[in-house]
Design a binder for these strands. Structure first.
Lengths: 303, 303
DNA sequence: ACACACTGTTTATTACATAAACAGTCCTAG
DNA sequence: CTAGGACTGTTTATGTAATAAACAGTGTGT
């Protein structure tokens, strides 16, 4: 990794892509960007984004606050790397099985899961499409799923915007409830009940007749998956649209000109690197399998 | 306004509903909650939420920072009131004209407009359904529009969640671009172009074939309304659903089994499995990094 | 071998929320 | 009609941030 980093590339993005220049002289580094990010993510997972201060991260690693700035140019930089770490990559299964709809649903579920595992990601402001490897991987997975539909590239992107938006929205609301639970130290039922009570006290039938009727019907005590409902309706609509396009209503831009890595596919080092990626994918797949198994068993044990 | 405020009602919410007790003795008040909120909103509109400090608000009104605490119990309180102010109420036309679909579209448009007028609202974390008069008014307008559909109250709420979620998501992304424009002092075209260039440099066809193809097709230079597309698909799906319900068909409500590992997060074996997954993810990320590096070098060597 | 790029540390500055104590104002109970 | 005290806006103080600047030690390429 001796590249001269692009001078106009934001430092955080360069780090995320692993194309930041590493220093050659001077004393050995004791820390690493990875360890710093890991510590920061641990803190955020445990105590929220607000608890992530440079001092707290440094303390967790046993250093002084200022030392972190040798690795990360500013807190914003650290946040981008934390986001990238928490975003993760889509599971390999998504790319393998099923039709476009199932695959998009799987992406939604996995993204939502990531948001609930790391709810603080939702607090980081979005500035344009994130130009990092992991977020690109999610987009890639979605576009691959939509390949069979024959939609235009524009439409595919718009559909992916629905999926990621749904996950983001669901994550935002659900994480809000989970935060309330944690803050007040009570369970979900207590929260919904006190919320319902508050509404009953404030929402009068004369000022808000329809909302009041909904409250009376107990909608705020209901725990059905309203977000899943929303996604299903949206995908129904997408299916309609695809059918219409395929019936010849709108112009489907033919989308698939072959990939151009053919020119380096015979390069030895590249082939090795590619094989390593496949192996790593397999290892991840296996680890996820074990995780699911452990989750099942833990639930079993709980009962 | 001499009500004894509910003791268990959060002060901010009491203020929002105008049922907070006003003091009876002592010197005349020079300020008012309204003026404070107005000043705070002005600052946030002009310079972002980050610029709203107690000191800044006080300065704008010509007072010292601490004086605000006589009117607002804490900054969180002020934020809730700012949010309520910025949320506003739906325009009168929405309740008067059109079928459910047009009315929901109008709500979406107005909500999005509010978000773009006051983008800082999107930075305020959501905790449960906001129990304030103005947000209740938006919900009321939506439920009223859905009255004619004959859907269950649960379904109506779920549909409203789609509409508000769409506005929120669109606002989040668009506001992100507007912020970039303001920060860098350039126009929209410059932003999308530099973003497109960044993508072209980072997204390779071998690692992200579909995404690369989309970039080649110019999707990131395209300025069509992808969010409007998303809402229309979703409402298409809602229309299908309404038709199915009215035809008496059993509505398909898919129930995914729990996403929440929260209940077993303290299980030792599960935690270990989860850590293994994270390690595997990291290994994959590293392998991908090496692969990209190898691809770059292979191309270099080829020349 | 030595200059100097680099390390982690120390110290200082600035900005913020808010607690506590204060002096002046004016309502209301006696 | 007056005194007590509730209430006003202010001053001062405390604790927590991010990060700039200067520092003394370390190891590498020339």
């Amino acid at each position: 990794m001796t590249d001269t980093a692009d001078p106009d590339l934001p430092r955080g993005i360069a780090l995320a892509w692993g194309i930041a220049a590493d220093p050659q002289r001077g004393p050995k580094r004791e820390m690493s960007v990875e360890r710093i990010v890991e510590a920061a993510v641990d803190i955020a997972d445990a105590e929220g984004l607000g608890a992530v201060s440079m001092a707290a991260v440094a303390a967790r690693l046993g250093y002084t606050p200022m030392s972190l700035y040798r690795y990360v140019s500013a807190k914003d930089d650290l946040m981008l790397l934390m986001q990238e770490e928490a975003t993760g990559v889509p599971s390999a299964e998504i790319g393998a099985t099923g039709r476009w709809r199932e695959r998009l649903e799987a992406i939604y579920r996995e993204q939502l899961q990531q948001y609930l595992r790391h709810p603080w990601v939702l607090e980081i402001p979005i500035s344009g499409v994130p130009a990092t490897p992991n977020s690109a991987a999610w987009m890639e997975a979605g576009l691959a799923a939509l390949d069979e539909t024959g939609l235009s590239h524009q439409d595919r992107l718009a559909v992916m915007l629905i999926v990621t938006g749904s996950a983001h929205w669901a994550g935002t609301i659900i994480a809000g409830y989970l935060r309330l639970q944690r803050e007040r130290g009570v369970d979900e039922i207590a929260i919904t009940q006190s919320e319902d009570a508050l509404f009953r006290a404030l929402i009068t039938a004369d000022a808000y007749p329809h909302l009041r009727a909904a409250i009376e019907a107990g909608v705020f005590l209901d725990d059905s998956d309203a977000f899943g409902f929303g996604l299903e309706r949206a995908l129904d609509g997408v299916a309609d649209y695809i059918a219409a396009v395929q019936a010849g209503a709108a112009p489907p831009t033919p989308a698939w000109q072959g990939l151009d890595d053919a020119d380096i596919a015979d390069d030895k080092r590249f082939r090795e690197a590619r094989k390593a990626v496949r192996d790593a994918e397999k290892a991840l797949r296996d680890a996820r399998k074990v995780e699911r198994q452990a989750a099942r068993e833990a639930r079993e044990r709980r009962r």
